[in-house]
């Protein structure tokens, strides 16, 4: 059977994919203190799902992460980002002015931390969703990436 000669790839990637996704979230939430942030985390998360799609086939990846979900995720990300801006507006500040989120005096940083965390989350959602949508659009054109093509 054709199923057999990717067995090492399957076993290894089954172990690696959770690590990749964990690393994406580490990158996301550690972005304040080291290199990283929403853009990188979004790409790494998308790459984890794409690795799953390449090893186990696009259809099973689509069952795990449906295309509807990725499209919605991209839209939710942009909405979350601009939502933080409107939150600041409602609190009486300017658009995206994090200092106004909790109406803090200058020098207090809770609003900055929360605001940046939320917009980075928005970037993560938007980038991961858009990249997965792009991948599904390209992969959906062929039935599957076949072995004999290589």
């Amino acid at each position: 059977m054709n199923d057999d000669h990717h067995v090492i790839l399957r076993v290894v990637s089954k172990m690696l994919i959770p690590v990749i996704v964990m690393f994406a979230f580490y990158t996301q939430f550690h972005g304040d203190f080291g290199p990283g942030g929403g853009f990188q985390a979004g790409i790494i998360f998308a790459v984890g799902v794409i690795l799953y799609a390449l090893v186990f086939g696009v259809p099973s990846a689509m069952r795990a992460v449906p295309p509807v979900f990725t499209r919605a995720l991209a839209a939710i990300g942009v909405l979350l980002y601009s939502g933080v801006g409107y939150w600041a507006l409602l609190q009486g500040g300017n658009f995206l002015e994090y200092q106004a989120l909790f109406q803090e005096p200058p020098g207090k940083h809770k609003g900055q931390h929360i605001g940046i965390l939320l917009i980075e989350l928005g970037v993560l959602f938007a980038v991961a969703g858009a990249m997965l949508t792009i991948f599904y659009a390209f992969a959906g054109r062929v039935a599957e990436i076949r072995d004999k093509d290589w």
């Binding site: 500040g93 300017n94 002015e97 994090y98 200092q99 106004a100 200058p106 020098g107």
Partner: peptide, 13 residues
């Protein structure tokens, strides 16, 4: 190191 300034971001310090 902070100086009292406006609420606006960027001229707080």
């Amino acid at each position: 190191v902070t100086v009292p300034g406006g609420q606006a971001l960027g001229n707080a310090s």
